[in-house]
Design a protein around this nucleic acid. Structure first.
Length: 698
DNA sequence: AGCCCTCGAGTTCT
DNA sequence: CTCGAGGGCT
């Protein structure tokens, strides 16, 4: 006899498996987790409980049986007894001046002494020595909890297993594990020779090496280490300044960067910054800046901490790396709202550790400003070390014909949509060009579907750009409601055709089974998205100028979809932040018969959302407070924290201004925290936030 | 009318 | 992250 189980347990198990697999993959392959370890663990535990309660749901390759995907199953979590802090960043000289001025003012010292060192681009690590023996090594993690990597760290030759001299009972040394550049090149050359995978860059090489499940693999990786601080046991060190501490660590046998120096006053700092910057390429490790630490311990104590960054230290970063490459072509993409965005297709080039092949050119104005033409040599960097941007054209290298005329003309945006051929128009006063095709345009339909399925909208896991495109191209989805009528066979068929179209080959019986399970997961994810909230649904519909914040405001104000659809312009503009433009977009959207059709169909296929009474004012202990969340929180996600604060009446905002009344600063908070300090805005740590939430729990 | 603040939209790579 | 535009305030 099978045990009785609720009919939705199987569906839930499928959704959980799909999610866990996706997250684990993201974590493992890309070092870029999208949820916290705690959240991942919660999902995993839910699935375990489900499988335990319903043994018939257990399958052999369930994520609950996999090893090593996340620290939960691979590396034991380690709670740092003294949190591993982050550093305040500075890019401009002016910020360094402010840093020194602040110290001089608060310590009363003029031209204070600093200990200065390169900021190595590696992996922060904590080494715990007990009675002089290396007892435990852990990664930084989020600063509070890291992963235990002792076995791997023991294979790093420059890390002593035993301290020399008279070591204290417990000493926690902190520093950076990195892969020296020469060793990295050497390793890759050999890997290439053996036909093995090469490492993308030294930083990823170091991070990936320490996360190997097999220490024997780590041992083959050429890693090195420099110590730069003491965590636990700091009180025991026989020193009264940071530079003395480093000397003491050196005497215990720990490697210290040879570039460490002391510097006096702002001149000393800037001189060091300049010298290291000039020597940067010759150093045997990648750096992204230098670190200034106020040297004397008593002065450090006087400066104290803000949130989770010491006020006595500063990381002074070097400007983003700029690289030259060539523009192969300029393509035009069509977005969800029909906006035409030109994109430069580049000769692949390594910028700050990744290979860049595309860079947005934003719009026609930007192209004109830069005068970018096909074939041009351009200077590229990654803005904020993330998104590639074209800085300028190197005109001397522009290709010319024999007569000396430029080979390529000034670039002109197309007069018709490259996707559907409809006319392109520039609305009055607007910078961007738009395709006028509306939902006739395939590109806009695809993007509308991608938006509908996205995480902040209906949150359909697994339905990304590629499959949205296929669904539209193969005519399976005309309106978003069609999504809910599709069955497993439809998705199998779609995937087969998509693979075929893209030349993805083998189709064994086993692959067919995998495809079926993939399709089942997708159907389950779509089904799960039926239960939603009105603000998510409104956002998902993609009304122009109605983003997340506006969707929430509309939901709160009207309470129900019917009330919103019945609202006239006057009723709409009564809402704060809704003016005539947004009001007319909303009215027009609901006036269109095909939009009303889609909504009727969505109701028909069983989309359900919670409706409440209209609430014209915010209530609760956080009413009238505008809150900004910054940095990463460890016990809950920022989204979650925001939602809970909103439930208490807070307005959540993305940027700090005079009107902000409270900033919650998590780990590695950056410019927003700095701005809040500057404006004298109240700042809470995660601990204070949790205490407040606990005190006002519903 | 001009300024400042927010919000929306688009974007890259792994 | 960055830009542009909507909306409110002075």
């Amino acid at each position: 006899m099978k045990p009785a189980r609720p009919p939705d347990a199987a569906a839930r198990a499928r959704v959980l498996r799909a999610e866990l697999t996706a997250h684990a993959e993201r974590y493992h392959r890309h070092d870029a987790p999208s949820i916290t370890d705690a959240q991942y663990d919660a999902l995993l535990r839910e699935l375990e409980a489900l499988e335990a309660a319903h043994p018939d749901l257990s399958i052999v390759d369930s994520p609950t049986r996999r090893v090593g995907a996340r620290p939960a199953s691979g590396f034991a979590p380690v709670v740092h007894s003294v949190p591993m802090l982050s550093l305040a960043n500075a890019f401009a000289t002016e910020e360094v001046h402010e840093f020194v001025a602040r110290i001089e003012k608060e310590t009363g010292a003029s031209s204070p002494q600093f200990s200065v060192e390169p900021k190595i681009d590696g992996l922060a690590i904590s080494l715990r020595y007990k009675d002089g023996e290396l007892a435990r090594a852990a990664t930084r993690g989020d600063g509070t909890t890291g992963e235990e990597v002792t076995a791997n760290v023991r294979t790093v030759t420059s890390i002593p297993h035993t301290l020399s001299g008279k070591a204290p009972k417990v000493l926690e040394v902190r520093g950076e594990v990195f892969m020296p550049k020469a060793a990295f090149d050497d390793f890759n050359a050999r890997a290439l020779g053996r036909g093995e995978r090469t490492l993308a860059n030294p930083r990823n090489g170091a991070a990936g090496s320490l996360r190997q499940l097999d220490p024997a693999v780590t041992a083959q990786r050429p890693l090195a280490f420099f110590a730069y601080a003491i965590g636990e046991g700091d009180g025991e060190s026989p020193t009264s300044s940071h530079s003395e501490t480093l000397e003491w660590l050196r005497s215990l046998g720990l490697p210290i960067s040879p570039e460490v120096e002391t510097a006096t006053g702002i001149e000393g700092l800037l001189d060091y910054y300049g010298r290291i910057g000039a020597a940067r390429d010759g150093l045997d490790y990648d750096i992204d800046g230098v670190v200034y630490k106020l040297d004397r311990s008593d002065q450090q104590r006087a400066m104290g901490f803000v949130s989770r960054a010491p006020r006595w230290a500063l990381a002074h970063k070097y400007p983003a790396q700029e690289v030259a490459t060539r523009v192969r072509a300029i393509d035009v993409q069509v977005g969800r709202t029909g906006v035409l965005t030109p994109v430069a297709r580049l000769e692949p080039v390594a910028v700050a550790g990744v290979i860049v092949t595309n860079a947005t050119l934003h719009n026609a104005d930007q192209i004109e400003r830069l005068d970018v033409r096909v074939g041009d040599e351009v200077i590229v960097r990654r803005a904020g070390d993330v998104i590639p941007e074209v800085l300028r054209v190197v005109e001397e290298y522009r290709p010319h014909d024999a007569a000396g005329n430029a080979l390529h003309d000034v670039y002109r945006m197309p007069g018709t949509c490259p996707e559907c051929g409809s006319a392109v128009a520039r609305e009055e006063g607007e910078v961007v060009l738009r395709c006028t095709g509306g939902l006739f345009c395939g590109a806009q339909r695809k993007q509308a579907l991608v938006h509908f399925a996205s995480r902040r909208a209906m949150d359909i896991e697994g339905l990304g750009e590629r499959f949205c495109e296929a669904l539209v191209d193969f005519g399976l989805v005309r309106s978003v409601a069609d999504l809910y009528r599709l069955e497993v066979v439809d998705f199998c068929e779609m995937k087969r055709r998509a693979d075929e179209r893209e030349g993805v080959v083998p189709d064994t019986v086993k692959a067919g089974k995998i495809a079926t399970r993939w399709a089942e997961n997708l159907v389950a994810a779509i089904a799960a998205s039926r239960e939603t909230t009105l603000d998510r649904l409104l956002f998902a519909l993609g009304v122009r100028d109605v983003g997340e914040a506006t969707a929430k405001a509309l939901t709160r104000h009207f309470g129900s979809l019917d009330a919103l659809m019945a609202a006239d312009g006057e009723a709409l503009t009564a809402i704060t932040d809704v003016g005539p433009v947004v009001a007319s977009r909303v009215s027009q959207f609901f006036a269109e018969s095909h939009n009303r059709d889609v909504i009727a169909q969505l109701r028909e296929v069983g989309i359900a959302w919670t409706e409440g009474p209209p609430r014209r004012a915010l209530e609760g202990p956080m009413a009238d407070r505008s809150v900004v969340l910054t940095g990463s929180l460890e016990s809950l996600s920022r989204d979650e924290a925001g939602a809970r604060l909103e439930a208490l009446g807070a307005r959540i905002s993305g940027s700090v201004s005079k009107k902000t009344s409270l900033v919650i600063a998590g780990a590695a908070a950056g410019s927003k925290l700095a701005k809040a300090q500057e404006l004298g805005i109240e700042i809470w740590s995660e601990k204070q936030l949790l205490a407040f939430l606990a005190a006002h729990a519903p």
